[in-house]
Design a protein around this nucleic acid. Structure first.
Lengths: 187, 187
DNA sequence: TCTAATATATACAGATCAGTTCAATTAGGA
DNA sequence: TCCTAATTGAACTGATCTGTATATATTAGA
């Protein structure tokens, strides 16, 4: 029960950073919106950047758990790969949808050497490793290449859902994925 | 010769915003790095947001001119569509590459109603219209769908080139585009 | 009830934020 | 040369930034 305040802070900070942006959301705003005093925040985290890193760790865990579980429900490896885009479609439909937290983090901390940037990159790497394994299970001729292609469609759909005018970016990405699977994943 | 200071400011502000981010780069930093006084900046632009809008207008013009010219050199419509990814590859290889200015703008101004966000979205729309027309010239069965798919690959490659570990995102995207063209663009 | 950890409010430091004011300076065109 | 517009430096406003200091209040276990 003791670390609950810390967890509560991370959880609420995640929502606020996602909604407002990292630079735009100051520590005073976090204190006001979370009801957690600034003193407590800086007792749990030495700096704002460390809080952001903790937020990104939570987001990575939540997002991968959510996505991979949705994919598992689909059954065959091939169906799992396509199910990713169905999950994305549900995500995009949320009214609070505002793109990917890690793309946003990389946008605000553009230097690759920055720890926040590096942690965002690590999330993408973990996604790749998982997709590569599923592509391999699906009997893909080039699992790594197929995984990279599907992930590019995913990132493109995420950006387009936030920035574009298109009706259903997830459906477009899925349709493209079907074609790629036909080519690289003989069934 | 009179509006040169204004143009110079926009041009230099573009580089600084692209490198540092919009929130991270303050007006004082702009004044220090451009050598243009803050007084002059606020005489040309009522606010920082208006300067950002001017920067995005310039970036839109520059980027589309550059990309479309590279594509035109390729010859046939089908080759033009693929040439987009070759151009992306050259862009990604620049040491100063730090993702897409419009994705970054949308990340820092996440509300769709924000004028900066809207202007970034407009850039993506103009890209779509151009690609749709080329896809149509190429005899695509569904030009709009093909254009949306190729653009998703483009955005995905841009994000991956900034945030990923992959060796050559542009080549991956091009390989996927080849497959999509075979399917949607009978030659 | 005592103890020790944890959280609180409040005020503050020092820097930086966007934006303004104003007098002095520079430059171009007639 | 003269006139006008553009630009400048520098100080300034008031708000906000990250982070700290201090003293008080809350909480939970022994």
């Amino acid at each position: 029960m003791r670390p609950s305040k810390r967890d509560e802070l991370i959880r609420k900070a995640l929502e606020i950073f996602y909604r407002e942006g990292f630079h735009a959301a100051g520590m005073d705003l976090l204190a006001a919106e979370t009801g957690i005093s600034k003193t407590t925040m800086f007792k749990h985290f030495r700096s704002k950047d460390e809080l952001i890193l903790a937020v990104l760790r939570l987001r990575d865990e939540n997002f991968r758990n959510w996505l991979f579980r949705r994919m598992e429900q689909a059954g065959s490896p091939r169906a799992q790969l396509l199910a990713m885009f169905d999950a994305l479609g549900e995500w995009f439909a949320e009214v609070s949808y505002r793109s990917c937290m890690f793309i946003k983090a990389a946008s605000e901390y553009p230097e690759p050497g920055n720890p926040i940037h590096a942690q965002a990159a690590e999330h993408k790497r973990l996604l790749f490793l998982h997709l590569e394994q599923i592509a391999s299970s699906a009997g893909a001729t080039e699992p790594a290449l197929l995984a990279r292609m599907l992930l590019q469609l995913k990132e493109g759909a995420i950006v387009t859902a936030h920035l574009g005018h298109e009706a259903d970016p997830a459906a477009d990405a899925k349709a493209a994925a079907v074609v790629l699977l036909e080519r690289f994943c003989p069934s």
